[in-house]
Nucleic acid binder design. Structure first.
Lengths: 247, 247
DNA sequence: GCAAAAGTGTTCGGGGTACACCCATGG
DNA sequence: CCATGGGTGTACCCCGAACACTTTTGC
């Protein structure tokens, strides 16, 4: 039997009946004692970029065992005095030379045998980079860096990174449908066509041009720059994201 | 300058131009070395229960400093050879005596100064328990356990648990709207009214009875048991969740 | 028998989808 | 001048919201 506490919290809760079950020493309370178990935490990041109308993901190739010469998502270890977000920023900075990149948590992976050598818990993020930022190659343990179109088969990825990538892409799709605008993948000024191509790449489906324009306009997050994109037929208007709408 | 890789992956990626930026030793590649930084990971869990038509959350009161006599979400430390989900299961088992409780990841919190004594990274979950399961009190570092209605002000919570709770509730709401059925908070057989009360508690808004019934029926996840709930006027039909629909 | 709750159908509006023509620009 | 792409409006359909009366049962 137990008594439920139904009143306001300024009255003390009603006494709670006790049903006896063995309780181990270390559980229930998040009291942290000095000898508590510790693990390394890594961050892995699916970096999406948009180039030539195609959504791509940035992969790196390992030059050491295990999984030598396998592709995988770039990642790094969370350091002392650093949050996970700061760790991701550091990884992104060293890959792209850019800071202030939009990033989102995807999920955390804690299977005991994820890494063959040592227990590692990994937090997956995704990040969106603008195409004008040029990625650089990293020097240690990485032999290559390349962009891969996501709507074509990717190479097989090391560890469980295929799952991580798939989850990251799914999270990106869901966030896009919940009406987050993703100007972060485009230059500051862009045409509606470019934005639509981006949406189609992320969602991997075709959208109607007029309906897309209508929807974007009634979201009221874009404003015309007054300039037109030159060098392209039809003379499309360039838009930018309204300042107060930036995420 | 960089070359984008546009082809199929059975051809090797095009050579990647290098832009030189200083790269620290430990980043980019998730290679784990033996001296890499390690940290304790805790799981905290917002345990939701549904009782007398009201959605409640299970809180525990700390009996030790810091935050002595403050309420907080139950939690525990992830142990060696244990996943985060197993750690949550262990916490839930010791709180409620039940296993196989539905749980979902909410978010991970890694601010460096979250815990005043020691760096701790925490993963927040939520769990849904059936009302017929009786929670028990835990013995060490906990003086009380009680259910609190979530649509009334909660006591102030220790650490950053107010944020954790708020995020967990928001995630639960979102998951409910994405059409997950939450029979886990109800007995095996329940009336539509009870299910609607549950929805209203979670979403904290009133729903139209007829529209709710219509929506549930066309989701085609429920089946009538053929029995009626006795002791209540109107003689409502009892429903159960179809077997193949269980999450 | 009467109060309380269960059960049932229709209407309306908004948003999403499908669809065709004219206009502007580059080559 | 012509080919390519940009820009616009309308009809239909589905889903969700609003809404009232009859039937069943407990007391």
């Amino acid at each position: 039997m137990c008594v439920f506490y139904a009143g306001k919290h300024d009255r003390p809760p009603i006494v709670f009946a006790i049903k006896r079950i063995e309780v181990t020493e270390k559980l229930i309370t998040p009291t942290v004692v000095s000898d508590s178990y510790e693990v390394s935490i890594t961050v892995d990041c699916a970096v999406f970029g948009f180039h030539e109308g195609v959504l791509k993901v940035l992969l790196v190739k390992r030059s050491i065992a295990p999984y030598k010469d396998h592709w995988l998502l770039p990642g790094g270890i969370m350091e002392k005095d650093q949050t996970l977000e700061e760790a991701v920023n550091q990884v992104l900075y060293h890959l792209t030379g850019m800071s202030d990149i939009h990033q989102e948590q995807v999920k955390i992976y804690s299977k005991v045998d994820r890494h063959p050598a040592k227990r590692v818990v990994t937090v997956c993020f995704y990040a969106l980079v603008k195409p004008e930022n040029h990625p650089v190659i990293a020097k240690n343990h990485i032999s290559e860096v390349a962009w891969f179109p996501i709507n074509e088969p990717l190479p097989s990825l090391a560890f469980d990174h295929a799952t991580l990538f798939s989850d990251a892409h799914e999270t990106l799709k869901q966030n896009l449908k919940r009406r987050l605008l993703f100007g972060e993948l485009l230059a500051d000024a862009f045409t509606l066509k470019e934005l639509q191509d981006l949406y189609e790449s992320i969602l991997n489906e075709q959208l109607d041009r007029r309906n897309f324009r209508k929807k974007m306009m009634q979201l009221d997050l874009l404003e015309a720059t007054g300039e037109k994109k030159i060098g392209v037929r039809g003379g499309p208007e360039l838009y930018r994201i309204k300042k107060q709408s930036r995420s």
